[in-house]
Design a protein around this nucleic acid. Structure first.
Length: 259
DNA sequence: ATGACGGTGTGGCACCGA
């Protein structure tokens, strides 16, 4: 069994103790992090190595920053989207060795986009096009591939607490969902939806207005698996428990099991 | 229509996230 997880930690400096606690109870083979909000030189390699993880890191000051933690050595690490000039540290890819042979991991902190029609929204769509192009070539090189992270997109109306009220707002627009579908069209499957799931399953809740307590959330953290892995996927769950911690991240981990 | 909460960097707040 190989377990791979994703978690937007919203500052690794603040959340490191929670990450280490979580790994103790959920000793996944790989954990992909987003929103490190720290530079490479501040990354806690030693603390994570002490609990058995190698790390590949692409950090940035204040914003963004992504990393892959793995029990086995990570090879062929690449940063950002090939062929897409980006000032922001949003993607890190690496190959992990597993019982299934090599598995390519593409870990992304997708652009938020702020508001449809804004410059940031235009950047989000261009970024998604760039990622799509990169994924196409990654899939040609690596049949067994996982694309995961904070997508900042709800895949459909099941992924939001208020489908009608939030229709065509950020994370909910048709054009964002079309870009999500375009990634799936490359041969990727949303692992979470391969299985029956509780209604109103979310991976993010606003800090404000008791968002978590009222389950006013979104499912925007996703794990997509390639065709070659799909038949081996035996489960995919959201672990809400870290959202109950003191000083939690606003996101919570998602885990996929590959038999 | 706005802000609400939390993180960062810097500064007595502004900016950003989703």
């Amino acid at each position: 069994m190989t377990k791979i997880a994703t978690w937007n930690v919203n500052s690794l400096s603040v959340r490191l103790p929670q990450v280490i606690d979580w790994l103790a109870t959920h000793p996944v083979d790989a954990l992909c992090l987003q929103e490190l909000k720290l530079t490479d030189d501040k990354f806690p390699h030693q603390a994570l190595s002490d609990v058995g993880y190698h790390s590949a890191v692409f950090g940035q000051k204040t914003y963004n920053g992504v990393a892959i933690l793995s029990r086995t050595v990570l090879n062929d690490v690449s940063k950002n989207i090939t062929g897409f000039a980006d000032e922001q540290s949003r993607v890190i890819s690496a190959t992990m060795t597993s019982e299934h042979g090599n598995v390519r991991i593409v870990n992304g902190y997708f652009v938020n986009g702020q508001e449809p029609g804004s410059e940031k929204f235009a950047y989000k769509l261009k970024w998604l096009d760039g990622l799509n192009a990169m994924l196409k070539s990654e899939l040609q090189a690596h049949a067994k591939l996982v694309l995961l992270g904070d997508f900042n997109i709800t895949a459909d109306d099941r992924d939001t607490y208020d489908p009608e009220g939030l229709r065509e707002t950020i994370h909910h627009t048709t054009v964002e969902r079309d870009h999500f579908k375009a990634l799936m069209a490359l041969g990727m499957t949303d692992a979470f939806r391969m299985f029956e799931q509780p209604e109103k399953s979310f991976s993010w809740w606003d800090y404000r207005e008791f968002g978590f307590r009222r389950n006013r959330g979104l499912r925007i953290d996703h794990i997509l698996v390639s065709e070659a892995l799909k038949s081996r996927v035996t489960g995919c769950v959201i672990d809400k428990t870290p959202r109950k911690n003191e000083r939690p991240s606003d996101h919570t981990p998602v885990i996929v099991d590959i038999a």
